[in-house]
Nucleic acid binder design. Structure first.
Lengths: 251, 251
DNA sequence: CGCCTAGTTGAGGTAAGTCAATTCACGTGG
DNA sequence: CCACGTGAATTGACTTACCTCAACTAGGCG
């Protein structure tokens, strides 16, 4: 049941009513697409078409410069909304590509607009997901603009960890991470060589390890202190493990 | 009539109907606040309260690290929505401060939620403004992450120019810019010393000048080419000088 | 077994940072 | 009107964090 990630995250903001639930179900039951790693789903500058919900796998949102330099704007995880801006801007401002095999639900971007009228509560949830992603962007900009290399890398993994936890994909202190050094580097505006060295420092400091595809955060509190990881923007503060089910929306 | 900036920008997306217009008017007629330069309007991490529309003056949205490093996430210009995320996240993720004397309209953040139900078309416009700002963030991240210094600075001024034009605050090839080197530096993740040197290079290249508070773009096409300025996200493509008045919204 | 991709490590270069001195613009008050 | 103070900008000298290039190692898979 791959759509559980999406439900999981959505319900961190509102508790869907039965009609909303059936709407959601129809949405999630819409056309599914399976994509291999490296597939280009959305191309920057292209006319906007569909939006997607990522149900399984990892993807990236990125921009490229003409000489091949790349900046990754964000890593997309299961449960994430993809291309939610296409219904407002008429061209997509960034590309989206898979980095692992992915399962996606495709739906027309206009559906989001219709939802605002017909399912305002649900729409609000989607807006919340959007605002959250914008918050990620802001944190990343802070990190790239003002953090030293080891703060950047540390912050990056702290954020990944928390996001994965929210959809149940991180347990204890570790998670599987299919990102190569190159991808991490392009997320943080640095070279993959320097990411490698920086990871070495973090390992020596006893903060985190990364072997094969498994990342283990050895001292999360210290890591968060050092990187000034706020985490405010990740979701609403929860009562220890339990999801916040009360709607913020008042009629 | 300072709210003209807001109308101006809004009407780049939809043409307000009479009832919408009166709603807008009541919104804009709400409590006005005048703020001196350097006033802190929103503090990062504080509980969310009001949203604002900036009617006059310049402000910044920024984050600070504990040792004083600062990253400016965006420059806020007349017509911009301020703190639009407070209605979704319960704490603000960044601070907002004025850099010139400012005139703002204050309104409760919940109003935005109510608008989604009662004025969905207008709400869509606000979402557009939001999406646009997110696009700015993405461009900035690309720039800070992957642009060399002179591309960064050039891109920054190209963007400012286009945004100011949209609200009628740039004429010909120049505009008034109250930003100090320090503010520019904190926007671009560099030191003010290096911004100064970089501006020297851009001047020598015949691309732009900046004396006193006036920035003049001497060769915009070349500047945009060099900085790979896309501009897609600024607004809808217009028919030469004229604003796009047709609603994208379909009932 | 050997190829291919990912990661590591070293050497050397450079873009950009820091520190500090000087100049400049502008406002204030004697 | 000029002296003075203040914040912004410029310039120089020096340092450094990070990059590039390149060689080498280690897994994973046909």
């Amino acid at each position: 049941m791959p759509e559980r990630h999406f439900h999981h995250k959505l319900s961190a903001f509102i508790a869907p009513t039965p009609p909303e639930l059936s709407f959601l179900r129809s949405l999630l039951g819409a056309k599914h697409r399976e994509l291999p790693p490296g597939a280009l789903l959305i191309e920057q500058g292209a006319a906007a078409q569909s939006s997607y919900i990522l149900l399984e796998g990892w993807a990236i949102r990125f921009k490229m410069l003409s000489d091949g330099r790349r900046q990754i704007l964000g890593v997309l995880l299961p449960g994430d909304l993809v291309g939610s801006e296409v219904y407002l801007l008429d061209r997509s401002t960034a590309s989206v590509a898979t980095i692992t095999p992915c399962l996606m639900t495709e739906f027309p971007g206009t559906l989001l607009i219709q939802m605002i009228v017909k399912q305002p509560r649900l729409a609000t949830s989607l807006l919340w997901m959007n605002a959250r992603e914008e918050a990620f962007l802001g944190e990343r900009l802070l990190s790239v603009g003002r953090h030293a290399a080891y703060e950047r890398v540390g912050h990056f993994f702290a954020e990944l960890y928390h996001r994965l936890r929210l959809v149940g994909l991180a347990q204890d202190d570790s998670f599987e991470c299919p990102l190569t050094l190159e991808l991490i580097a392009d997320s943080l505006g640095m070279s993959h060589v320097h990411v490698s060295r920086t990871l070495g420092v973090l390992r020596d400091e006893g903060l985190l390890t990364r072997q094969r595809r498994v990342v283990r955060l050895l001292d999360l509190p210290r890591l968060e202190r050092i990187t000034e990881f706020a985490g405010l923007y990740l979701g609403r503060k929860l009562g220890d493990g339990e999801l916040y089910l009360q709607p913020k929306f008042d009629e």
